[in-house]
Structures are given as C-alpha cells and as structure tokens.
Design a binder for these strands. Structure first.
Lengths: 204, 204
DNA sequence: CCCGAACGCTACGAGACCGTATCGGGCGAC
DNA sequence: GTCGCCCGATACGGTCTCGTAGCGTTCGGG
C-alpha cells in the first residue's frame, strides 16, 4: 500500500532518477548537471536538492536503480546456461541504458570512491552469476574439479565486454555462442559414453 | 639538427603536450582545463592558445604522442609471438600513462568524433599486430586456413583488456600466457594429415 | 472545506573556465 | 647593439554550474 500511496514524494524521486539515468547515458557523468536533470524531469531544482545531497549521490542511486538482474537458468547443460547467463547480463543489460553509462561510470569511478564501489559491486555480481553456473557444472562432473574458475570467467566475459565497450559493436547471439563454445572446448571433459558435453564439431 | 634547433617553439609544444597527457591520465579528459595545463607546463595560457585551437586538439595530439609501438617478433612459434605481442601492447602500454587515459578517452570518444577516430585507430592498430602474427601462423600451417582471425583476436585481447580496464587488475605475464595457451589449444591443428579444425583431445 | 506539507518559480552570489586583449620582457638573428 | 618575434603576466567579459533563499501555488489528508 505504501508504494502506491506515497504518490508525491515517490513520483518525484522516480522522475529525477529516471532523468539522471538518461542524462548519464547520453552525456556522461561529468556533463550531467542538476539544472538539466531538473529540466528533463520536470522537477524543480530546489526540490531535487530537498531529496538528494548532490550529483554524486544522485548518480549512484540512479545507476543502482538501473541494475538488471538476470535469471540464472539450470538446464543441466553448462553451455546453455552460460549462453543464457551472458545473453542476460552482457547483452541485455549492455544494450540498454546501463550499457551507455558504463564507460563514463568506470571513468568516474577512478576518482569517486563511492562510484568505484558501485562499479566493482556490479562487476563482481555479474561474475558471480557465471561462477555459479560453472561451479554447478563442476559439481556435476562436467568440468574438472581443479578448473581455475576465475580465469574461466575472465575468458568468457572478457571478449564480450571488450566487444561492447572497446570495439563498440553489438554483442550478437552468434558471438556469445562462439565465445562460449571456444572456451568450453578447451576445458570440457570428454565424458565416456555420453556426448552431451561434446562440443567438438563446432563449425567455427 | 632541426629537432634541437627549434628550441623555442618546440620546447613549448612538448611541455604543453606532456602536461596535457599527465592531466588527462590523472583527472580525465573532462576535468582537464587549459588553466591547469598552463600551470603545470609553465607555459602561459596565452601561448597555449597561440599553438593549439582548443582542448580537443590538444588532447588528441597529446594522446597521439603517447602511442607506443610494440615490436612484432617472429620466433616461428605462434604462442611465443602472441605472448610477446600482447605483453608489448596490452601490458606495457596499459601500465603507463596511456592506460590511465583509456577509460576517459573512450568515454569522451562517444561524443567527440575526432577522439572517436583516434581511439578506433588505436584499437585497430593493436588488433593488427595480433592479426599479423596469426596470419603468419596460418601461412605456416600452424593454424587452419579457415580460422576466424577476427574472433580469435577478440578472444585473446578481450580477457586482457577486460582485466585491465574493467577489473582494474594488473595484467601479469602468467595471465597473458594462460589466455594465449587456452585460446590456442582450441584452434591448434593436431597433426598434419588430421582433420582441419578438430581438437579431439580436450584434456584439462 | 481547510490547513499544512511539499512543490514550482525566480533570483541570487560564488566560483570555475573559457577565450581574448593588452602590455612588458627576453631571446635570437643579423 | 638593435630589432623583431615569441613568450609571460595580468586582466577582462562572458558563460556555466552550483547550492540556497524567498515566496507563491498546489496537492492531499482530516
């Protein structure tokens, strides 16, 4: 009841955070100004200062509100789970507003400790999704027990994020599948009698 | 002789570009101001404007002056060449001033077309080094002829740059070797006379 | 219906940067 | 030595952004 009743204060907060997120995505953290946020959101600058201490807090909250939580699948196939995981995090998230923010956020995070923690938490969380999926595969015996999970996640996430942020190209489903297949083919255990994990004949 | 003769104009230019590079590495492109550049370099603001049109040109030239060109080795071993290549580009360069600039540069490049071209050129050039090494291996027969070179470069460079820029961890020699070895083990041709891309022995 | 809290609007002073003008000083060439 | 060019220092007007104050207006619960 509370969430639909607090119409005034809550609506204002949401409008401000939305406008902030839009602005950060468009012009970056540095060029985002309170005046422009006021103009976009339709909320008076005075009112913004009544809700938020300053731009830093505003940006942190706005980004936090944009965080997308993917659904971790459990199909029994490491390959499918990984593709699902990275399509949900790397692709979906990075195609939206959050993707446009990332570079500016990471840049600003180099100097703002608060933003630094936020970005780091975001990164760690994403890695944890992949880690979970991988560790389940280890438990099933699809991967050797002594696999360097951290390295494996880096090998998977690295090319995708690099493609998105540095090369500024779309992360296609084909790319996700290609990365997962290539990396997995190195680590996969050849199961005796069962060809489920076999990704041997990938057509590159 | 010319370079040591043009003492006045040349020394001033160099001092300004150095200070600009330092500032960009420290506080980013946006927060870099002409006044601060003047203060750091010891060159009067008036003089800076006599040499450069504005901050944009200044940053572009400063970054351009920082570009590090690695030596492409040709040891006959694809693995060693790749490690040498990525240690030279990803590691050495990204450990210096240029590394601290990259995030801010890429962010600013989203809005400044000139910087965009610069960053893109930089990225493409680095990829070309790896591409050269890989294509030589293909010519030797160490790699199958139908290898997706572009994907392969992304698989190699991605994890390293991701480690440096996103995770903000040092790119160690061990990491470079691990990435190269893992990715290569997928693509390497088993034996001459065997199937082309087949990597049957997927041991851990 | 009425009152109080929350909001919108305008204006303000302060500070940072920008880009330019003006003038004085010094270095180098001849 | 002298002249010309380049540089340094200061100052200025202009713009942008910040954060706050004053005051009129509107929304919503009782």
């Amino acid at each position: 009841m509370v969430e639909s009743m607090q119409s005034r204060s809550q609506r204002v907060r949401q409008a401000v955070l939305d406008a902030t997120a839009d602005l950060v995505a468009e012009v970056g953290v540095e060029r985002t100004t309170i005046d422009e946020i006021a103009s976009r959101s339709g909320v008076a600058k005075t009112t913004i200062y009544r809700h938020f201490a300053g731009k830093e807090v505003l940006v942190v909250e706005a980004v936090h509100a944009c965080t997308y939580i993917p659904v971790i699948t459990d199909t029994g196939s490491l390959r499918d789970d990984l593709i699902s995981c990275f399509s949900g995090t790397t692709k979906a998230s990075y195609d939206g507003r959050l993707g446009d923010m990332m570079l500016s956020l990471m840049d600003a995070a180099q100097r703002d400790p608060e933003l630094g923690r936020l970005v780091r938490a975001q990164t760690d969380q994403r890695r944890r999704f992949a880690t979970t999926v991988i560790e389940r595969a280890v438990a099933r015996g699809d991967l050797a027990a002594d696999v360097d999970v951290d390295l494996l996640v880096t090998l998977l996430a690295g090319p995708l994020i690099y493609t998105k942020l540095v090369r500024r190209q779309r992360v296609t489903d084909e790319l996700v599948a290609a990365v997962v297949d290539t990396v997995l083919s190195r680590y996969s255990v050849a199961k005796p009698g069962d060809g489920q994990t076999g990704t041997l004949s990938s057509k590159v």
